[in-house]
């Protein structure tokens, strides 16, 4: 088969040595939600950090949205700020000195694109964060903070979304509150997403594809049936 990637395909093939730990993975994703699933220490966060360009693989290739982001053989290494990858961090990382509205607008501001009020309204409606716009991040609950972080990543018009355990810091009630938004996002946009989690229940509800990791290697790929019962 010719290795011809459709534009919404993701290809990740990387090697990285992190002290004693050797990470060596290869997997593909598509326009759905690809879950990186595995115990802590299996290399999940290191992988998404390399896809985002926040750290550099020793060797390999990363392709997303028809765009080669990294290719050690061809000496390609796009800087993080040019990758257009929406990254939702575990701890949200909203800028504490900006209001919610300015946090949401930050990606658009940095890209120099004109303001798009319709898109802004669409995203704030999708996530029910319109009433929060004037608030400061310090005055948000954990669930609100993660919804704003999700909105901020969406509004930069990413080619790919990286969701790094976005619910890990939330209690069970907050998780139930926010999970429907991820499902809605999956069903209402065609945006490819990589969703990192160690919680099988969470992955079962959101993923369309599962990449199971252990000890820095891919041990299985397939559908949610990989998670067992």
């Amino acid at each position: 088969m010719v290795f011809d990637l459709a534009s919404d395909m993701i290809l990740v093939e990387i090697d990285k040595k992190l002290g004693e730990f050797a990470l060596s993975v290869k997997f593909e994703g598509d326009s759905g939600v690809t879950a990186l699933f595995g115990p802590s220490g299996s290399g999940k966060t290191s992988i998404v950090s390399m896809i985002a360009g926040l750290s550099k693989p020793d060797r390999g290739r990363i392709v997303a949205g028809g765009d080669t982001l990294f290719d050690s053989a061809a000496h390609i290494d796009k800087p993080a700020y040019r990758r257009r990858i929406g990254y939702v961090f575990q701890d949200g990382r909203l800028f504490p000195h900006m209001s919610v509205a300015r946090n949401l607008d930050y990606g658009r501001w940095m890209s120099g694109a004109p303001r798009d009020d319709a898109q802004f309204a669409r995203v704030t409606d999708l996530l029910d964060i319109a009433p929060l716009l004037k608030r400061r991040p310090g005055a948000l609950s954990g669930g609100e903070r993660q919804r704003v972080a999700l909105g901020r990543a969406l509004l930069m018009r990413p080619l790919l979304m990286l969701l790094d355990e976005p619910m890990a810091s939330l209690d069970a009630a907050r998780k139930r509150e926010i999970l429907p938004y991820f499902v809605r996002l999956r069903d209402e946009t065609k945006l490819p997403m990589i969703y990192v989690s160690h919680d099988p229940a969470e992955v079962r509800q959101i993923a369309t594809r599962v990449v199971r990791l252990d000890g820095g290697h891919v041990v299985a790929t397939g559908g949610v049936e990989l998670l067992g019962q």
Binding site: L54, Y81, M156
Partner: peptide, 20 residues
């Protein structure tokens, strides 16, 4: 980590310094 977040949102080094 705030500087990393700014980079993923499209801010180069100089803008990250100025805005974050």
């Amino acid at each position: 980590k705030f500087e990393d977040a700014a980079a993923t949102l499209g801010a180069n080094r100089a803008w990250t310094l100025l805005t974050v």
